[in-house]
Structure formats: C-alpha cells, structure tokens
Simulated assay, not measured.
Amino acid sequence: MTQVLVLVLALAIGVVAGLRAMTAPAVVAWGAMLGWIDVADKWSEWMAHPITATVLTIFLVGELITDQLPKTPSRKVPPQFIARLISGGFAGAVIGSAFFHTFSATGAGMIGAVLGTMAGAALRAGLADRNHGKDRPGAFIEDVIAVGGGFLVAFLVSLVP
C-alpha cells in the first residue's frame, strides 16, 4: 500500500512539474527541509539543506516571472518539455527516496510531467480562448495550482505510513 501511495504522490509532483518545471523541485526541497519528506541518510539528503531550498525557490520565482512574458516558448517545445520530464522525474525520485522507491517514483514523476504538460497547455489555451486571447489570467491560475498543489503533495508525503 505504501508503494502505491508513494507512486501516486510522485505522479502528482510530476504533474506539478508539467505545469511549472521549477516548482516541483522547489516544493520538494521545502518539504524535505520542513521534515515532511524524510531524506535523512539517503542520497537525497542534500535537498533538505536551506541553501538548496533557497536556490530552488529563486529559480521558481524566476520561472513564475518569465512565464508571464509574451516571448516565453511553449512548454511543448523539446527543450521545455525535456526540462519538465527531468524535473518531474527528479522530484518524484526525491519523494520515492523517503520510502526506498527511488526508481519507480522517478518513472511516475516523469509520467506525471507528461500529463501536467499536456493538461496545463490545454487548460491555459482554453482559458485564453474564453478571455478573448488574454493569457495572463490562465497563467496566474496555473501558478496557484502548481505552487499550492506542490506544497500539498509535499505535505501529504508526511502522512504516508
């Protein structure tokens, strides 16, 4: 049962990475630093360091800002898509490491990143169509879902037996 819960949470953090690539590793670092994700004495222990959380948070904020710019490329172009796969897989691996399921959680995180990338693009395009081409409201909604959902996933890891 634990492995299934870990895979679901890794999949969910992958969805977050599909929405915002840097959000997933940042919230996982915060989760580790706050003790929600037990990375003590594991390969991922460095994620709990305050410097790691700070640097990843700076990247997250930078991404939230650059995403609002009109020249930001689509999340579905290869470099953006690959970044989301790597980010989702990595964040999933960190969650999995807390339960010694690193490899399966990596795969779940990558699958979640694909789902989040495609669903996020469709959601945002649909919202822009309904707002007469205005993309910013959809972007802000997506930011809230990604950051809030990411912290929720990180917290839920602490509840897995």
Score class of each variant (00 low, 15 high):
Val8Met: 07
Gly112Cys: 06
Ala105Lys: 08
Gly149His: 00
Ile141Lys: 03
Leu159Trp: 07
Val160Ile: 05
Phe81Ile: 12
Leu11Asp: 09
Pro73Ile: 13
Asp129Ala: 15
Arg136Trp: 13
Arg136Gly: 11
Phe59Pro: 01
Ala10Leu: 04
Pro25Ser: 05
Ser44Tyr: 01
Val15Thr: 10
Met1Ala: 13
Lys76Ile: 10
Phe81Lys: 02
Pro25Trp: 01
His49Gln: 12
Ala98His: 06
Asp41Val: 01
Val8Leu: 08
Arg84Thr: 05
Phe81Leu: 14
Ala40Met: 05
Ile51Asn: 09
Asp143Trp: 13
Met47Ser: 03
Ile65Lys: 01
Lys134Ser: 15
Gly148Val: 01
Pro161Gln: 02
Ser158Leu: 12
Ala17Ser: 15
Asp67Cys: 06
Asp129Met: 12
Arg124Asn: 13
Ala24Asn: 06
Gly109His: 09
Met110Val: 10
Arg124Trp: 05
Arg130Phe: 08
Gly109Lys: 09
Gly109Asn: 09
Val147Asn: 01
Pro73Ser: 11
Trp46Lys: 04
Val16Ser: 03
Ile51Trp: 12
Gly116Ile: 05
Met33Gly: 08
Gln68Arg: 14
Ile37Pro: 05
Thr57Ser: 08
Ala40Lys: 13
Val28Glu: 03
Ala29Gln: 01
Gly109Ala: 07
Gly138Gln: 00
Thr2Lys: 05
Ala113Gln: 10
Gly96Trp: 14
Ile145Leu: 15
Gly148Ala: 02
Val144His: 07
Ala24Gly: 06
Ala154Ser: 14
Ala10Ile: 09
Leu127Asp: 05
Val16Gly: 07
Phe81Pro: 13
Ala108Thr: 10
Arg20Val: 03
Phe151Val: 02
Thr72Met: 07
Ile95Glu: 05
Leu156Tyr: 05
Val147Asp: 00
Ala21Gly: 15
Glu45Tyr: 09
Phe59Arg: 03
Leu7Tyr: 14
Gly14Met: 11
Ser44Phe: 03
Val15Phe: 06
Phe100Glu: 14
Leu127Thr: 01
Gly89Ser: 06
Ala125Thr: 02
Gln68Phe: 04
Arg124Ser: 12
Ile141Thr: 14
Ala91Asp: 10
Ala98Phe: 03
Leu156Met: 12
Val61His: 08
Val77Ile: 14
Ala105Tyr: 07
Gly107Trp: 00
Phe90Arg: 03
Lys134Thr: 15
Leu64Phe: 05
Ala108Met: 01
Ala122Pro: 08
Lys134Ala: 15
Ala98Gln: 07
Leu115Gln: 07
Ala48Trp: 00
Lys42Glu: 11
Ala24His: 04
Phe140Ser: 10
Lys76Ser: 11
Gly116Met: 09
Ser74Arg: 04
